[in-house]
Design a protein around this nucleic acid. Sequence first.
DNA 1: ACGAAAATGATAGTAAAGCTATTATTTAAT
DNA 2: ATTAAATAATAGCTTTACTATCATTTTCGT
Lengths: 225, 225
Amino acid sequence: MDFQVTFKVNSSIYLRDPEASELGKQIVKQAIDLIYELGFEHFTFKKLAIQVNTTEASIYRYFENKHRLLLYILNWYWSYIEFLMGFKLQNLENPVIKLQLIIDLLTHELPQSSGGLEYNKKFLNRIAIAESSKVYLVKEVSEINKNEVFKPYKDLCATIAAVISDYNPTYKYPRSLSSTLIETSHNQQYFSNYLPRLTDVTQTDSNKDFVHDFLSDFVFKILDK
Amino acid sequence: MDFQVTFKVNSSIYLRDPEASELGKQIVKQAIDLIYELGFEHFTFKKLAIQVNTTEASIYRYFENKHRLLLYILNWYWSYIEFLMGFKLQNLENPVIKLQLIIDLLTHELPQSSGGLEYNKKFLNRIAIAESSKVYLVKEVSEINKNEVFKPYKDLCATIAAVISDYNPTYKYPRSLSSTLIETSHNQQYFSNYLPRLTDVTQTDSNKDFVHDFLSDFVFKILDK
DNA sequence: ACGAAAATGATAGTAAAGCTATTATTTAAT
DNA sequence: ATTAAATAATAGCTTTACTATCATTTTCGT
């Protein structure tokens, strides 16, 4: 089975809907590639314009600035994770299996279908790990938050929290555990890669498997106690 | 009891030791105030120069760029936390108390003595929460890491890991749990403040107490299981 | 106390980043 | 076919990030 998905991203994030034109789609697609390649700090609209073979001014008609573009990409990513989660959890009853699937999803790369038009999932994953905190760790967070632009993240958090509460209705911190799971999956993947002394990963471990095992152990110990 | 502490920060972080001159000390002190006020993205050496009443060029003689200056500040902060931890844990035997003290330290503001010369601990704490990930979430992380500039963070992590292993020698992930504790304390403090739906904080809770309780609950559940 | 060396200040300048504006040209919609 | 909308081409402006030069002040060894 192979299909393509897109999501309606909150329209207050962009000036012009990038999904609505070929240029817009290219801007987002190439932005993902370029942020992956350069890191967000070195990524500029000038460089993106060259990559897309358009002009800086054209990109500014879609996004106010590069921060908004990153926010757009992450909204898309969070929506996609939530979509996949709903898809995988459907018809499942056993909350143990559900939690396991959630941890799988948070610690492994996303399926990439062959279509050259869709976003590169490996890059998206890496951007979520290394750049996602930069969208909310800014002075303007409260202002930005007013337009519900973090809704997909909050929704994802709520979805996971519901599974947690389903598994153990007496646990007092389902949302915090949920956001901790998401953030820790990013952190530990990053650390095990670049700062392994902050983790217990070993040379023989695959990083992704290590994080999976750590989180699995972590969640079930907390919820089974 | 009132005393003042300073730490030798890894000399590869700076070009000229800021502790060795009045100007250097002012640069760091005012940088803390200004990063707190503006957020790291809006903080520039130009603005800092005005605040310190010196020139941009003079600041560049101390630090290669603002990223290095942030790294310096966080190295100082991590060393300070480690120092306080050693201080508070000394002569204690009971690992339960030790872990509780560690969680206290990670979730509450630091003691600020009255001396006007020392760094503002409230600001430092806020910088650690909101800006610390920006020193390692950069493309150049591996290059930067070569000079041991993250050593204070790794040491702190190892110190906490030792207490964890002391408490429960069979637990398999003392370092990962340790870095998760540190990062989660930052995240949850930030979220409970600005994006409370990602947490289970209530209006009546103090944020710091909420995070303390959440962390306490999960650490002991994990280690007692 | 003196001269040398080091640190700082004053000033300038450059390249890139971040952003806006104008007009011409192409594309899409009715 | 006409009109509106989108894009390209170009320019320009402000700020950031950083380097260079040289004069002046401070510090330090003797």
